[in-house]
Design a protein around this nucleic acid. Structure first.
Lengths: 211, 211, 211, 211
DNA sequence: TATGAATGAGGGTTCATTCAT
DNA sequence: AATGAATGAACCCTCATTCAT
């Protein structure tokens, strides 16, 4: 008899939550549009709110300030990219270096696909660079990389492995960003990804020794 | 009586030109100080003028707008770095790959030495990114690189050589920037430069063939 | 079957009324806390509602607007103080001037004990100063004073008595507020109250004539 | 021959200084008007600038922020009142208690004449209450009072004299403010000033002893 | 040519109040 | 009756650029 009560309550609350979530979604989507179309310089809370079809007040109900929106966008990106790369790197059905190649390609293409957003987000970076979450992200990325490298360079010392991982990931990351920043064709981006993957492989091969 | 006129005029003008040059120099120096100390966000024309001991009006007499100052700073940087790298790369008394290694090290250290300026300049990049001179710079850099690569990869097709050059230079450039952005010690930066140079050599060796 | 209706309704209503009263009580208590802790500047309806564990909507069901809450707080204060002072002034077991002294002390201490609330309430005064109830309060206070003064200055004309009463009460009130506003120790506040009482007695003695 | 040079230079600069001064004057005057007419609540930088016939930017060239304007208004008031009271209290051609009476009257009337400004300024006090200059002002006032009291109560201990001075000045100040706050006629205000002066004299007479 | 006062659009953020649910 | 999401006017302040002197 009382069983439906909870569903009802939850039904009453569900629309609210769903609505909030929707609103946040709308705002983030609008933020992406503003950022891609207008650039970091013209990314203003008013513009985002208007694009989202929402009042500034509502925007501030869900985000404490402008940089929080930018940071959220960046965080979401990191999460997506991280998951993508994680899933590729841990796919033991492929050879390690093949996984690396696939990762580079996936990363380059994902950067390229949202180039204007990435560039604008990069331009906005100064505003959230100091945030503590940035460290967390880097740490997570590094750990993911380490696990993969442990497979590839089993005989290296932890310190050395850490260094090599840093070099590989940094290279992939910054070159990928740079390449997609210069508006290029998909074919070009793919060529670059192959080339950079090759470079990383050459580097690792030499490191590993006789491979 | 009127005879000395021309000399006088020219004498009058010379100091003016000298003065102008000095003024421009002062402004640029001030701009560098403001940028390094206060960051891109607090880089304002008023602040630069005050630091230079000059009026805003004068500043606007020599630079059409704020971004022009930033762009000039960037241009000067590029010129300096270009000359540095050019002189190393063309020093035929050293083996090509050794020259590459030296170039990477020189570039990494020059970035590292002015890290805060570089970061701030990078943060300000959005404001001058569209300027046409950016292309010229890249072209000059590429040509310098090509000449070096012609030595290293004589048998490669021009197209291929262009591509390899781009990859090498882009990698060096963006990794170097990233590394000096994260405040590291000089020893670390040197270690990174060696590692990246090694990576590039490995890449080129594979490309070249049997080296 | 319908007989119990009225009792039931009334029983149903009683809790409601009790509940309303409780709600109002909660809101006022929360308002006091917000005002004392955060000051007039940070006294917002949202903050009060949250502190009271109530929705803003509910808050607006019981108070037409923000100033009404502040005014109610002030009114309550006035009532409490009025009762306190009334009870002292009408205590015929003590000599009139002794009663005056006791009143001053009681008032000073009561102000001092809630100094931060009083100050904040004073800061918020502009928002409710125009309310008509302010006059009622003053009238009530004046009447209370008059009755006491009738005892002390029986021979004075009503007009004169009114004036003297105003002077005495105003002096006590504003000096008391000022003293407790400057954060002082209890001993200091007591010393001030004695001194001000002495001053008022000296004034009245001269007025009365030979006392 | 070169003599006029300096005047010329000074003439070139004089208008600027004069202009600045005039601008500051205009802004302060406008601030007074806005404060008196619209009250502390509606005292905004935009409103002041508009009333002064000046852009907000100019306003901010002369005042670092809104509270600085308010504080400057208050400071000017204090200076004026201080000078007024100082000149009366040190006029040894009159008997001390007569000087006190004159001071009270002068203070009450000066408060009354600008009642609406004073009230509004009082309402705005929370914004500058913490400023360090407030202490300086109080200190200056106290010293002025002390010098007068030294004449009146030569035999009192320094500590006692300080206390009596505080009581007298506080009473005059806060009662004067309160009286002019309630919009009264000039005659009423004068009556109040006489009465309060009488009260203070009665107090001091008792303190002094046989006077 | 140099100056620096003046401009004012524009930016981020707050909060009293309403009203659909 | 209760909720709290939504609103948007209003506020304070900055800064690139101009132009009268």
């Amino acid at each position: 008899m009382r069983l439906p009560q909870k569903p009802v309550v939850s039904a009453r609350k569900a629309p609210r939550q769903r609505r909030s979530r929707q609103l946040v979604e709308d705002i983030l989507e609008a933020a992406i549009r503003v950022l891609s179309r207008e650039g970091a310089q013209r990314f203003t809370t008013a513009r985002v709110a208007e694009t989202a079809g929402v009042s500034v007040g509502s925007l501030y109900q869900y985000f404490p300030n402008k940089q929080a929106i930018l940071f959220r966008l960046q965080t979401d990106e990191w999460k997506r990219t991280g998951e993508l790369m994680g899933s590729i790197l841990t796919d033991t059905s492929r050879a390690p270096l093949e996984r690396l190649r696939a990762t580079v390609e996936a990363f380059f293409l994902s950067e390229w696909e949202e180039a204007s957003l990435r560039v604008a987000l990069g331009d906005a970076a100064p505003s959230y660079r100091k945030a503590p979450e940035v460290k967390d992200h880097r740490k997570a990325g590094r750990e993911r990389g380490q696990r993969f490298m442990a497979e590839l360079l089993p005989q290296a010392s932890p310190k050395e492995r850490r260094f090599v991982t840093d070099v590989v990931m940094t290279t992939m990351s910054v070159v990928g960003k740079k390449v997609s920043e210069q508006s290029r064709s998909r074919a070009e981006v793919e060529a670059w990804s192959r080339e950079v993957a090759g470079m990383l492989c050459a580097y690792l091969s030499r490191r590993v020794g006789g491979i």
